[in-house]
Design a binder for these strands. Structure first.
Lengths: 89, 89
DNA sequence: TAAGATTTGTTCGTATGTATA
DNA sequence: ATATACATACGAACAAATCTT
């Protein structure tokens, strides 16, 4: 069970965890990251909070989301691009 | 048409209705309960809400589900056993 | 053999309300 | 007033297995 620091937003701490996994290659480019529900279960947080995390990582260019399919890891050269683009690769 | 109380979650009220039918024997052990779509129609609620109800009854040991077939009533001695968890949403 | 209907499983999208700091 | 966080509830789309015709 993950312990969150009480004085920093949960969603930011989850962003840092997922970004770490992406940067370490635990989540591979063009592969799915865990689904929203899976993250709800792993971190014991609300789905709305998970979606905030995903939205932020998407905005930072780390991932992209395909509706009804899932969220995928971008290639490294897409990271930090902060594109408002939502789909494709 | 069923009237739901406005100050209690719909899914809890539907759980109570179905549990009552099971305990009264309206749904017999080893027999199917209505399908998700049938419950959507009967209660005029979303399928996601129906699935939350079924998941809860399953967690409480009242029913078990066979994929692509349906959900069946457990025998009385299985009720309230709260076997494998599978919460969500 | 083939096609269609049925049923559960899974995913993301959207909105609303409540509570708290 | 703003941000955070949770719970509830709706919907849409598709997959996969099963059953029927």
């Amino acid at each position: 069970m993950i312990e969150f620091e009480p004085d920093r937003p949960i969603w930011i701490q989850v962003v840092e965890i997922l970004r770490g996994r992406i940067e370490r290659g635990e989540y591979q480019p063009r592969h799915l990251v865990p689904s929203e529900v899976q993250m709800v279960q792993e971190f014991s947080i609300a789905r709305t909070t998970v979606r905030k995390v995903i939205a932020y990582l998407r905005d930072q260019g780390f991932v992209y989301t395909v509706p009804q399919i899932g969220t995928f890891v971008h290639h490294r050269d897409k990271w930090h691009q902060s594109e408002s683009r939502q789909t494709e690769d």
